[in-house]
Computed example of a mutant assay.
Amino acid sequence: MCTLKMLPPFQQFLTLTEWYVIPLIWLPVVGWFILKSIRMDLTIPQVTLFMAFGIFIWTLLEYTLHRFLFHIKTKSYWGNTIHYLIHGCHHKHPMDGLRLVFPPAATAILLLPVWNLMNFLATPSTAPAMFGGGLLGYVIYDITHYYLHHGQPTSEVPKGLKKYHLNHHFRIQDRGFGITSPLWDKAFGTLPPLKLAKKNR
């Protein structure tokens, strides 16, 4: 269990999240944004297309956050403390099931600039579908992350993702930042070395 003695009990509580809370809270929000685009006369195929684009944007955001924020190098006391709260604790205690998904309160804060970005990039009718797709991508990411730590996959794709992610945790932490896919690791040259990947098989 990851203990954070420097935090008051209430703040510690805010960092603890059961995996099922994520779809329970955010899937209705996804549905609401999709309905918003439909009510502005977007067809189902159009909504599906913009949702897919939103999911694609999320995959890049997933990679970027993991690589450049979660693995940022810090030197100050407060920098180290914040980094530990955001991600360091997870690497120190990777099987702590209550800190494998992002707390909803923190997610809600981060969603505001993302929503503003979507509004800037898209039209009033397409922005909700894109945002809903991005939020759906986030839900898939968080559930996948939990499953890669605690699930026992039997088919090849999830088994490969689990090996890929555990390789990031236990062998080479400055590679393999993708969770739901190695797509952006391939694009940006952060795939783990082939020899390490083979040892994990």
Rank of each mutant, 00 (worst) to 15 (best):
P28V: 11
L110C: 11
K92Q: 06
C2V: 02
K199T: 06
C89Q: 03
S125V: 10
I57M: 15
T43W: 11
L117C: 15
F50N: 05
H145I: 02
C89H: 05
L69G: 00
K36R: 13
K36E: 10
W26E: 10
F53H: 13
I72C: 04
T74R: 01
W58I: 00
L121G: 04
R67A: 01
W78A: 09
S76N: 13
T81G: 07
G189Y: 01
S37L: 04
R67Y: 06
G160K: 12
Y141P: 01
P158N: 01
D174Y: 09
V29E: 15
H149K: 12
L60C: 01
L112I: 10
I86V: 14
H83I: 13
P193N: 06
A105T: 03
F50W: 14
L16A: 07
K73H: 14
L24C: 15
I44E: 10
L194N: 05
K186T: 05
G132S: 13
G137Q: 04
Y20F: 13
Y146F: 13
H169C: 03
Y147S: 03
V29L: 15
L61E: 11
D185N: 08
P113M: 05
K159P: 09
F33Q: 14
H83K: 15
H169N: 03
G132N: 08
K73T: 14
A127E: 00
P94A: 11
H87N: 14
P23F: 15
W19P: 07
K159V: 07
T81W: 03
P193T: 12
L183G: 00
F10N: 07
K75N: 15
G132R: 08
L161K: 09
K186N: 01
Y164K: 02
M51P: 02
L35G: 09
A52W: 09
D185L: 04
R175W: 02
F120G: 06
G151I: 01
V139E: 07
R171A: 09
L183K: 10
G97C: 06
V157I: 06
T59W: 07
A108M: 13
F120K: 13
T17E: 07
E62S: 09
L60P: 00
I143N: 06
T180C: 10
P158S: 01
L49P: 03
V30T: 12
T81Y: 07
L135Q: 05
L16Y: 11
W32D: 13
V101T: 06
Y63I: 06
T17H: 10
P128E: 13
N116Q: 15
K198V: 08
T64Q: 03
V101K: 06
K199F: 00
M51F: 01
Y84P: 09
F68G: 03
I57P: 14
T154S: 05
K186F: 00
M95F: 08
I72W: 08
I22G: 00
E18N: 13
